[in-house]
Nucleic acid binder design. Structure first.
Lengths: 353, 353
DNA sequence: TGTTAGCACTCCATAGAAACGAGTGCTAAT
DNA sequence: ATTAGCACTCGTTTCTATGGAGTGCTAACA
């Protein structure tokens, strides 16, 4: 048996209604809700069919129906296609983000934090944003300077303008000439190289050329290495974790505690980021319903993610986490608009600079 | 009427018992619990007195008693004095921190994060740590370098080795000589100055001397200014927020949601940090019971804070947030030990460098 | 005079019973 | 194919015991 037009309409009505109320919806409600002009009895028959097909579930014999994961999935897939043209819907809130992005602060960190917060406030769900991941980055600039007689400041810039500093202590003060020589040594040998491609042989060669300052060069190389290390545990910013308390189905102690922990230990979220980045099939938007999510503690949630891309292949993820009955419609179109803005604005303003 | 020895002992027994169980404690329990060898009837009389004095409360007529804020306060004040000598009690967990601190990473951020986490795991309460606040700091080093033809990297180091970078875009490439000249200009004029003391007159003088590069110097000064701005919203790291679910009196939706929000919006916690730093009377440990806390959303919690101090007057705060019936004993001694270790270890390892 | 045993009383917590009502499935009529 | 009608199910809410923990008070005791 396939889904005819009418069944689809009924299913849609059930889901819409359930998204709003969070209560199982009965046949009588649907009978009024839709423009089909059918009696509740007819609806009941159809609902029995839909249940048999696995699109809806009856929590107990005398209750209404709620959508199953399969039902949600159908709804979402259907909806995304439909929405394609009316992209400019959720403009209201996204315009504010536009503004934030334009007056972009020096620290990308604070931009992302603010964005997460704003998204959370507008959607009433929990949000997460991962900082763009830098991969295969090339060293753009490396420099050591004397901050005071015993302290050397290392500054490293990689493509994408990620900057890393560290202070190294030295036993004997370096004079200006040595400093200059070492800087030239480092830059001529390392500039333009992908960090991953720096191997042991190169390091030992460098150390050899540095002579008595081999130790110092070694420490500088440690700093270089730490750029990669930093990169491995991706920065993730979250906001609106408290929103889960607005949805009774998530707010019981057991679940709430788990979810809060998940948001706190951002590490678990990074699985989600990874999955999103690898699974991305081109649309850039992904929906995980219930158990589909790669994070087990979120099995009672739905997650909608978007990947955004800056220039130079830096990719990041935005995620919205809410109950199964989240307003997919609004969330997806919000994310779509935001994504497209991010993609374009960031690119543009980076070309300026 | 004053508190005689016996009343004190009874009060103490009540509190101890309540801390453990979280249930109102009755006279019979106390009669067995203490070594006073008194019947429950006698205890009842004493308890009636204690209640009249305001140290304990009866939730309802036929229930046992629970400590009032006044009772907790007495207990805590008493206990702190008693504990003074047995400082080495909570060594177990603190030794691990010792280790972390010794192998201290370059980023203070990650040390503090880890510390917060470890504290939370050991105590089963929520924790917060504020990064040391830098005040009245002097510029130690300032430098601009050319990263690529159109991009200038600004690096600023202030006392305490706080480093700040920013990339500035320029329309026309700068040659080496100009760069050197500007660096000398900036360093000779600004080095050693407290950032707060840089005024408009100096800036305009600098700009004048920079000639055609006045704009660039202006942007550099903006970066300098942002060091202060960064400082104003203190970095605060939290951990173990989910622990509040372990205490039923905090775990109802209303309260939990408020608390989670408080931990998320670190801003509210900064009030606590401020209060702790200003109220500190020398012991370095402070206890806020219930309504005593400056953060309203925590009125059902108790907070124990410690201020730690690194060299150069950099002060930070560690806080442990739990239910009113937190294990003050353990928390206070843990914080004391940790504080003393932080005070000494950090100082020492900074002298090394 | 301080302590204790005993007892009536209070009041929360728990469990069960009863009433309710939303919603269903099925049947028979249209 | 649709619908009205009806018996039935089952979760939710409300009410009513019942039990027990704990108290305050009184009277007896050392």
């Amino acid at each position: 048996m396939d889904l005819d037009e009418r069944k689809l309409k009924i299913l849609q009505a059930i889901i819409r209604n359930y998204l709003e109320t969070g209560e199982p919806v009965g046949s009588r409600t649907i009978s009024k809700y839709t423009d089909l002009n059918l009696s509740s009895a007819t609806i009941r028959n159809e609902m029995a069919d839909l249940e048999e097909l696995g699109y809806i579930i009856q929590p107990h014999t005398s209750a209404g129906r709620i959508p199953s994961d399969k039902g949600y999935r159908l709804y979402v897939d259907h909806m995304i296609l439909e929405k394609e043209e009316q992209l400019n819907q959720a403009t209201q809130e996204v315009k504010e983000m536009h503004k934030i992005l334009l007056e972009r602060e020096d620290k990308m960190e604070s931009v992302l934090k603010q964005m997460a917060k704003m998204l959370a406030e507008n959607t009433n769900y929990a949000t997460m944003i991962s900082a763009p991941q830098v991969r295969g980055n090339k060293l753009k600039f490396i420099q050591i300077s004397r901050v005071d007689p015993r302290q050397i400041l290392t500054t490293i810039v990689v493509e994408g303008n990620v900057i890393k500093n560290s202070i190294i202590s030295v036993a004997d003060p370096l004079d200006d000439e040595t400093l200059l020589k070492l800087n030239i040594l480092l830059n001529t040998n390392l500039n333009g190289l992908a960090i991953e491609s720096i191997n042991l042989a190169m390091i030992s060669k460098l150390k050899q050329q540095a002579g008595v300052y081999a130790d110092l060069v070694g420490e500088v190389m440690d700093v270089v290495a730490s750029v990669i290390k930093d990169d491995e545990n991706i920065e993730i910013y979250t906001s609106g974790a408290n929103n889960i308390f607005k949805y009774p189905e998530l707010a019981d102690n057991q679940r709430a505690s788990e979810l809060i922990t998940t948001f706190e230990e951002k590490q678990m979220l990074s699985e989600l980021v990874q999955d999103t980045l690898t699974e991305d099939k081109g649309t850039g938007i992904q929906v995980y319903i219930g158990n589909e999510t790669p994070v087990k503690t979120m099995k009672d949630c739905s997650v909608v993610t978007a990947t955004y891309e800056l220039e130079e292949g830096m990719k990041g993820t935005i995620g919205i986490i809410g109950p199964r009955r989240m307003d997919y419609d609004k969330v997806i179109s919000t994310l779509k608009t935001l994504k497209s803005q991010l993609d374009t604005i960031y690119k543009k303003s980076d070309e300026e600079s």
